[in-house]
């Protein structure tokens, strides 16, 4: 009889142990699922941050591109100033070559909107992505240096440099 009682006690004890382990593994699985979801969110945030940084790098490179910037003979080049004659040439050839400048500008659309004295748009680089997830636009006010001017020589116009980076 006592032997029978001991056996039953042992079985109950074993069942308790199994139940504890079962709950433990359920909690562990919940923990792993939670961590996976958290990591996914973190990865998305990191991806977005990296895309933002890349967009900023491209914008800076566009603003300071030697193919566009104003010059002043041997003096230092001006900032936020675009040579209008160079810009007009690039627009006439539909912008910079995508093959040659893809490493610099990737999928983006860079153009200048002249605001004064009249509104004209000049394309600098056009490589928009057909199906994109998002686009980050940046704007810079720039002066357009016209070496030919209007009668009296050198003159300045102003416009906005648009840089739209696609992902």
């Amino acid at each position: 009889m006592e032997h029978f009682k001991l056996n039953k006690k042992a079985q109950v004890h074993m069942t308790e142990t199994i139940a504890v382990m079962f709950i433990f593994f359920i909690l562990l699985s919940l923990g792993i699922i939670f961590y996976a979801k958290y990591s996914q969110g973190q990865a998305r945030i990191a991806e977005y941050k990296q895309f933002g940084q890349k967009a900023m790098d491209m914008t800076l490179q566009a603003v300071f591109l030697p193919e566009l910037i104003c010059t002043n003979a041997e003096a230092e080049t001006g900032s936020n100033c675009i040579d209008l004659q160079k810009l007009q040439y690039l627009n006439s050839v539909k912008g910079l070559s995508v093959e040659e400048y893809f490493s610099l500008f990737s999928y983006s659309y860079i153009w200048v909107e002249q605001l004064s004295p009249n509104e004209i748009e000049y394309t600098i680089y056009n490589n928009t992505k057909p199906e994109y997830h998002e686009v980050i636009p940046s704007f810079f006010v720039v002066t357009l240096k016209d070496y030919l001017g209007t009668g009296s020589g050198l003159s300045y116009r102003y416009g906005v440099l648009h840089v739209e980076v696609y992902r």
Partner: peptide, 20 residues
């Protein structure tokens, strides 16, 4: 390689100035 591209742009600018 960059020099070749820059010279091309300055060539077009020179042409525009010369025509003017």
């Amino acid at each position: 390689n960059k020099m070749s591209k820059i010279i091309l742009i300055y060539e077009s600018k020179t042409t525009a100035l010369k025509d003017f």
